[in-house]
Amino acid sequence: MSIILNIVIPCYNEQEVLPETASRLLYKIDGMIKFGILSSKSRITFVNDGSKDDTWRIIRELHKKNPIISGINLSINRGHQYALLAGLLTVKDDADVVISMDADLQDDIDAIDEMLLKYQQGCDVVYGVRSSRDTDSWFKKKTAELYYRLMNVLGAKTIYNHADYRLLSKRALIRLDEFQEVNLFLRGIIPLIGYKTDIVYYERKSRFAGKSKYPLTKMMEFAWEGITSFSTRPIRMISAFGGFIFLFSLLMLVYILVRYFTGKTIVGWASVAVSVWAIGGLLLLSIGIVGEYIGKIYLETKKRPRYFIESYLKDFEQEEKEEFTCKIEKTREIS
């Protein structure tokens, strides 16, 4: 039985690479439809995350040329994770499986074959994992390694060298829809779904065109989002360190009493100054971490919508009917 596949691709200012991405994916999808692997109902869905360039115009043109290509336009820029979630949840009812990937053609399209094979073998989640980081600079390679280690140490369990190239079955997407947090970190949420999972290794390529949307500062923000969204370990570390400071203060009390009774009561100013500055800095840092968690609780309790979809180019014929209806209504208003 043919599989209904939908490939979801978040896009932000991707006008340089979008036509090539669409061309390669269409070639891939058409071939798999001809061989009977995929159903003719399979689609490619580009999600425009409030781009400032011609990304949405290009998506509309691609949609008009080929009905296999669909488009979702968010009302404002919400960020990669929200755009990806919007695409996944919007198409989940019209597909057996959904594969998410980036628009920059760094993810190997040919890995889709193995992902679908894993799905046919009973997997609900298949992670695309980089086999190496040869295309990265030394700095990016080391910071990425540090990132994954830090995430795991602090309790946010993630798949090493996995970004957002993955396959999700329909029932996995239904479970994903039950997670309602506003502070979104899909790389941490999806492993919590459970079900049978597997990994497909692929060689990540250099970006085809355009600039990376994740510079160092944004990667650091993303890492912090993942840690604070999925782990309370930083707060526990503060508590543990507070206990250590308390025990150390008891030792200092014994030290001071011994010096007092031995007549050596003159203490150097350096130790006092260093202690004040060190403890003061740690207190401010601790307050900042606790404040970060309180801020996230504040956002969660508001229960604000995570995204708004302005338009969804799903069926070209339906779109033409809606445009025709709008023209008739405008004509009636004028007359």
Rank of each mutant, 00 (worst) to 15 (best):
I4S: 08
I7K: 02
P10A: 01
C11G: 08
Q15Y: 06
P19M: 08
L26F: 03
M32A: 15
K34E: 15
I37Y: 12
L38V: 04
S42N: 12
N48W: 02
G50A: 04
T55V: 08
R57Y: 02
P67G: 01
I68C: 11
R78T: 11
Q81E: 15
A83G: 07
A83W: 02
G87M: 10
T90P: 06
V91P: 00
V91C: 09
D96C: 03
V98S: 13
D108Y: 04
A111E: 01
Y119T: 07
Q121S: 13
Q121R: 11
Q121K: 13
G122K: 03
C123L: 01
D136S: 13
S137Q: 03
W138V: 12
K140F: 11
T143W: 11
L146P: 01
K157D: 08
A163C: 05
S169N: 08
S169V: 05
K170Q: 15
K170I: 07
L173Y: 06
F179R: 01
Q180E: 13
L184I: 14
L186V: 07
R187C: 02
G188I: 04
P191Y: 00
L192Y: 00
E203S: 15
R204P: 06
K205T: 06
S206F: 08
T217H: 14
F222A: 13
E225C: 04
T228D: 00
F230A: 12
R233M: 13
R233E: 12
I238N: 06
S239R: 11
A240L: 14
F244A: 07
M252P: 00
V258Y: 13
Y260H: 11
Y260V: 11
T262C: 04
G263D: 05
K264N: 15
G268Y: 06
S271E: 14
I279C: 07
I287N: 03
V290Y: 14
I294H: 05
G295F: 10
I297R: 09
Y298T: 07
E300A: 06
K303Y: 01
R306Q: 14
F316R: 13
E317C: 05
E323V: 02
E333D: 10
